[in-house]
């Protein structure tokens, strides 16, 4: 892709800007950090990190371990420690044992609890056996794991093991049934956060940046006053709202991918180091006591 296109794209995704969700208008709005500080008290703070691709050695980033370590250091240095970190998949580049060893070692440097879910790069050739051996959440069933923190219900889903004929990710009926059971006891007032690797909205179906059975998740979420879906996979920030459900994808710690449909294929974008650092990073999320959602992007540059 042309660099100009990419930079224009970066301008509208607003990396480095704090976003808040205006429930009344149904829109994400950018605002300065100063404005945000005056807002209501946080109920839950956590961090999303994604697409570290440990094992990748190509011009888009020759040192993905170094940039991943930089992200971990920055998370450990946050003024308000997050309650936990969620890695939304593609920990490794090619599911190789040495890559898993290295990413596990790097992640062990995090000072707060870690939750993970697999990306399609973590399940090559073994349907995720090695990933599960190393990162199994004790409660993960059918690819799903859920936990509660500060009154917020969190669920991580797996949508990278099977693919619809269209090439889109798939959650599968057994996992959807489990999700329905998991959400059933919750009151409509409980804030819910869902994590997935492939987005659960149509980011760009032609490149497989969508999940074929995501609508069933949306149906289950529609009754909640606060529902947030955070995903990875596309190495860039995209935000969408459908009804009261707020969707956002995250940047990678390794390299950016093109904006949807820019160029012929979703190949890593090669940028000068300074620009690459600005286009990669992690995100902190605050769910405020009044249910307001805040997403803050932390570029590595």
């Amino acid at each position: 892709m042309k660099r100009g296109h990419f930079l224009r794209h970066m301008a509208w995704t607003g990396l480095g800007v704090l976003w808040t969700f205006d429930a009344g208008a149904g829109l994400f709005r950018p605002r300065s950090v100063g404005e945000a500080a005056a807002a209501s008290l946080p109920g839950l703070n956590f961090v999303q990190i994604s697409d570290s691709h440990i094992g990748f050695h190509k011009p888009a980033n020759e040192q993905v371990d170094v940039t991943f370590q930089a992200a971990i250091n920055a998370i450990n240095a946050l003024k308000v420690p997050p309650a936990f970190v969620v890695h939304t998949g593609d920990l490794t580049h090619l599911s190789k044992p040495a890559e898993f060893d290295q990413v596990k070692q790097l992640l062990s440097g995090l000072k707060v609890p870690l939750y993970t879910l697999p990306g399609e790069h973590d399940v090559i050739g073994d349907r995720g056996k090695l990933f599960n051996d190393l990162f199994a959440g004790k409660d993960r069933r059918e690819g799903m794991q859920s936990w509660d923190h500060s009154g917020v219900h969190c669920v991580s889903l797996t949508n990278v093991l099977d693919f619809a004929a269209t090439g889109q990710g798939q959650i599968g009926q057994p996992q959807l049934d489990l999700l329905a059971k998991d959400l059933a006891p919750l009151s409509n007032e409980t804030p819910v956060v869902i994590f997935s690797h492939i987005p659960l909205f149509d980011a760009y179906p032609k490149w497989g940046w969508a999940t074929s059975d995501a609508k069933q998740v949306n149906t289950l979420l529609s009754r909640f006053a606060s529902a947030t879906v955070l995903s990875g996979h596309i190495h860039q920030v995209l935000q969408r709202t459908e009804g009261r459900i707020q969707f956002a994808t995250a940047t990678s710690t390794a390299f950016p991918l093109p904006a949807p449909g820019v160029g012929e294929q979703p190949s890593p974008v090669v940028l000068p180091e300074k620009e690459r650092r600005a286009a990669t990073g992690f995100r902190s999320i605050s769910l405020m006591s009044d249910r307001q959602l805040k997403l803050e992007e932390h570029p590595l540059g």
Binding site: E120, I124, W207, G208
Partner: peptide, 9 residues
């Protein structure tokens, strides 16, 4: 398919 890019068939 390619499981990394399942739109490839």
């Amino acid at each position: 398919i390619c499981t990394l890019h399942p739109f490839m068939q």
